[in-house]
Design a protein around this nucleic acid. Sequence first.
DNA 1: GATGAATGAGCTTTCATTCAT
DNA 2: TATGAATGAAAGCTCATTCAT
Lengths: 191, 191, 191, 191
Amino acid sequence: MSRVKILNAAADVFSTHGYQRASMDEIAMQANVAKGTLYYHFSGKAQLFQTLVTEGMSELVAKIRSDLNTDVTLEEQIKRIVQHHLDLYLDNGALARIVFYELSNGLEDEVLENIQQIHQEYIRFLTEVLEMGRAEGMLRSVNSRLAAVGIIGMIEHVCAEFLTEGEHLAREQLEEVIITIVTSGLIRKVE
Amino acid sequence: MSRVKILNAAADVFSTHGYQRASMDEIAMQANVAKGTLYYHFSGKAQLFQTLVTEGMSELVAKIRSDLNTDVTLEEQIKRIVQHHLDLYLDNGALARIVFYELSNGLEDEVLENIQQIHQEYIRFLTEVLEMGRAEGMLRSVNSRLAAVGIIGMIEHVCAEFLTEGEHLAREQLEEVIITIVTSGLIRKVE
Amino acid sequence: MSRVKILNAAADVFSTHGYQRASMDEIAMQANVAKGTLYYHFSGKAQLFQTLVTEGMSELVAKIRSDLNTDVTLEEQIKRIVQHHLDLYLDNGALARIVFYELSNGLEDEVLENIQQIHQEYIRFLTEVLEMGRAEGMLRSVNSRLAAVGIIGMIEHVCAEFLTEGEHLAREQLEEVIITIVTSGLIRKVE
Amino acid sequence: MSRVKILNAAADVFSTHGYQRASMDEIAMQANVAKGTLYYHFSGKAQLFQTLVTEGMSELVAKIRSDLNTDVTLEEQIKRIVQHHLDLYLDNGALARIVFYELSNGLEDEVLENIQQIHQEYIRFLTEVLEMGRAEGMLRSVNSRLAAVGIIGMIEHVCAEFLTEGEHLAREQLEEVIITIVTSGLIRKVE
DNA sequence: GATGAATGAGCTTTCATTCAT
DNA sequence: TATGAATGAAAGCTCATTCAT
């Protein structure tokens, strides 16, 4: 019971303050649990964070992956990736933001590596999708990995903007902008 | 003299460890200055960081801006923005990364606002460029601000990837990928 | 069953790390028992330690005592004391070291007293032996209690040295050194 | 100024409670200094302890050594060593007790090694003195190093006893007991 | 202008102990 | 008998900040 309460509280606190500014005190308080309990379930702050990310994210990433292993057009595949990624962000904003933002700074090196693996895995997956499209001549000829990285960056920034600034925007608008740019930008229109 | 040494050291330390993990001790040490001197020139860590960003970044942003106020095609303008942004990142990686990455977390609220302004200002500028293009019917009809945000996100992620992982990539490749996606993705090819 | 496993584990852990650094966790783990079980059998760390020492040591001390209540020469008596003490140390090093080393520091006052009693009792016993010898004019005229303390100190240091540094020494050498010094040092050679 | 106050307070607290039970809080309090000040002057508890021992003890040991490099009889040399050691203990009880008692347990390994070196150095020195005596045929033929260790053990235990229990004993009595046993025990009486 | 010794609030972590089962 | 999740006081340590010089 406590373990779950802690993970929930941690997701909340970490995503609100970032890794460094989040304090074990606050997590314990938010979880309605004594501070010592954190250390009963997790070996430390770093490992709590890591668990949060590993358990939470990899599950979500798996979900995306499974939905994509179907026979649809490349355009449709990209559309779905964008949509899933948006879901991921907008529904699990807290968690997602952590993973994709805390990457550059503030983490203990130990934890950083672990999280970067998840990130890299996701990039690799998207790269493969693009690579296949390119092999079939359906995509403009650019470095697939960089394209994948670029697409992810675009999605994340737009979501961050949405979460921070503009609640006046509709979710559909985000989707439209990204999908438009990405598909038109990448897919070779055969005429 | 000290002031400059401190700012240089600060840029280094902040960009290496992020705002939170950077310590005044390390900055003082790297600047070859006593710790007290930091507080003689700056009122505290937050203000030192702010100064760094304000003085450093806004100058760079101004440079970009001036180069763009010319009469060139929209495609050319976007190309130049991307190139300047790449320069900004790759030449001043340290500083730039701070501004665009530390945004979400880890900063004192006081500082955060200030930096977000610079960020917003830049987005606004890019938005205007796109807006003009759209008004002239040259761009696909998407929310300009979101598109601007998306483009920035793409550029930054690709640069981050370049700085972190792939030194085996050529700068030209980054440019090619981004410009291809952005121009093809946004610009309406008139036939 | 558990009680014995715990006492064995405790002897091991306490003697390896000393009283303070020994943790109930480690004892429980080494005893293959849940942490709560320790508190079922013993009221706490202090009392577990105390039990260990009281049950273990006083038994050993009793053994020495019984073997000495015989009619042999003073020199022989001293020889036997030394030998027994050496056995005590070298065979039960773990336990013995605790009793004679942890005396000065690190123990809760409550426990300390109890252990010091055992220690004092042993000193008193040796003192009596020497006192008897002195009464019969066989020993040089020095304070018997101090002599007893000194002898014990000598034995213990030599054993500690043996256990720590020199496995290249033979047990016989320890015996020889101590007995030589003590007997020659104390016993009046009648001419 | 603070540094000295801290070292004095530390000597006091460490020798009263032992290394483990001594708390940085108490040391700071006793030194009339903020806790942070401890960490300004010393990198941590271990290093504070180490400094205390290294700076304090090695100086004392040096003093003993210098006084002995003279041309006196072996008996006189041993007498002086005992006397100095007694001084060392009785005047600097706090410090000395730490060094010779905390050796077996309770110290961080890092610190332990450092202190053991000082200890070993002292043993080595005493061993050399005895070795010389033996070479000249003046001592009974026993392992010199073990004898040195034994003598030190005897001195220390007697002093500990004196400091703990018997303030009713005179200092001269300690000296007498030890010197009697050691000289009679070791020195070959030529007739 | 510059220093660096000193500060103290706040952090992460440890661990003996409790208690419902 | 035995468990192990939960506790919370107390520890060691960090670091932005202050201030007398």
